[in-house]
Every structure is written in C-alpha cells, then in structure tokens.
C-alpha cells in the first residue's frame, strides 16, 4: 500500500549569523493510510519544522517528501500549495479559525478554494457538523464558541475535502483534559472512518499512547519509541 506520507533522508538547517544550526538530520519516516503516528520531542527538537516540510510550507533542501505517491522535492511553491490544498488537512493548537467567517464558512474553506459548488459544500458541511456534534451552530462565529467547540470546527475543516493526510499540531494543547479527550476521540474516529493518515504532534503522553506508532525527534534525528517506554520523566 502506498504510504500517505513518506520522508526519506530529510535534513534541514538554518543559518544564525555565521553559524549553521541543523534542525533535522536524515529523517526518514512514513505514515500509512488509516494510521495515526504521534510525533514527540522536546521544544525546539524540530517537530514544527518537520510538519512545515511535510506540508510544503517550507521548501525541501536535502531529502524528499512523498505525499500520497507524489514527490514534493521538485515542486515549486505554487505546486506545493495546490498539492497541500488537495491532500492535507491541518489542525492547530490555537485552532486558527478565521474570526470573521461563520462556522460553516470556516469549514467550507478548503472546498471553496478547490472550486466546488455551494450545494456540494452545504451537504458536506451539514454532514461534518453532525459528526462533530455542532448541528445548528453553522451561523455562529468562532470566538463565540468554547475551545473544545472551536477545535471541533477545525477538525471538520481539516476533514471536509477528505485529504490523504491530517497534520495535527498539539490539537489538545489549549483544551482542558476532558475536552482534550473528547476531541481526540472524535478526531481518531473521523480519521479512521475516512481512512486518512494522521501525523500528530503532541506533548501529551496520553494522546501519544493512543496513536498506532510513536516517533521521537531528538538531536535532529528520528526514532521509534514504544508506548510502554514513555515515562513521566520524559522532558518534552
């Protein structure tokens, strides 16, 4: 089966004055459709950089990222953006909803950008609002919703165009424990229903343990860790 995402020999560095700082070094990994992989690591270990490279927000220097069988190495910004729009759904810690758009408009955004008809959008929006438990809230504005509700809207937006890959960056980071659990449950269910792959960045051991695999970024490299080896002393 073609992995939803595969990185091979991915390296990334940036210049700070005269000094070169390596963030990622020879990172190879993959996530299969229907699979959830948790990515853990200390602050500054390169988790966000890896997500940026995978999503095409930053150009690839060394190595390659293959998204649903399509190499991103030789793509320019325009092509990467189009690929991202089709194949990736984002979920952020701070939700990143557009405050001046209603719940429905926020959810519809990826479909609208893809040029789909309003009728198709409406049907899918209604379906997802039900799925995330926000029926009847389509006209509300994001900043009138609770954190948990906002994250549900973000989940609906990430899934509306049925992307191959969901990138979730600390999706429970701004939520209380109970809301966090509910959101993760919902996210796992919906991703699994759609057979999408999910790469989940988290600091929460509880959330990480719920994933199929756990990868740890450390000193620029990546390694797989077993859920039972995660301890309270892990400083991430």
């Amino acid at each position: 089966m073609t992995p939803a995402i595969r990185t091979t020999g991915l390296s990334h560095a940036y210049m700070s004055g005269q000094a070169k700082t390596t963030i990622l070094h020879d990172v190879s990994m993959e996530v299969a459709p229907g699979q959830t992989v948790a990515l853990i690591g200390r602050s500054g270990s390169g988790k966000s950089t890896l997500l940026n490279l995978i999503s095409g927000l930053e150009p690839i220097g060394t190595g390659d990222v293959v998204l649903n069988g399509e190499s991103m190495k030789s793509l320019n910004d325009h092509q990467r953006t189009l690929l991202r729009g089709r194949q990736i759904g984002f979920i952020y810690q701070s939700f990143n909803l557009i405050p001046t758009l209603s719940v429905a408009d926020n959810i519809a955004l990826p479909l609208a950008l893809a040029g789909s008809k309003a009728a198709q959008q409406n049907h899918r929006i209604a379906e997802l609002l039900t799925a995330v438990g926000l029926e009847g809230r389509n006209r509300d504005y994001p900043d009138r919703l609770s954190g948990g509700e906002q994250q549900r809207v973000a989940i609906a937006r990430a899934l509306i165009h049925k992307p191959a890959l969901i990138l979730a960056d600390e999706p429970t980071g701004n939520l209380d424990a109970n809301s966090g659990r509910q959101v993760m449950q919902l996210l796992n269910d919906l991703v699994s229903q759609q057979n999408s792959a999910m790469l989940l960045v988290t600091h929460s051991m509880e959330v990480a343990r719920g994933a199929d695999h756990i990868l740890m970024l450390e000193s620029g490299g990546i390694r797989r860790v077993e859920p039972d080896t995660l301890t309270q002393s892990a400083a991430w």
Partner: peptide, 11 residues
C-alpha cells in the same frame, strides 16, 4: 496564512 495553508496559492 490559514488560506495559504488550506491550499490558496500566492496568486
């Protein structure tokens, strides 16, 4: 930026 992340090109 959200639009860009959601697939809106620079153009």
């Amino acid at each position: 930026a959200i639009l860009r992340a959601s697939g809106a090109t620079r153009r």
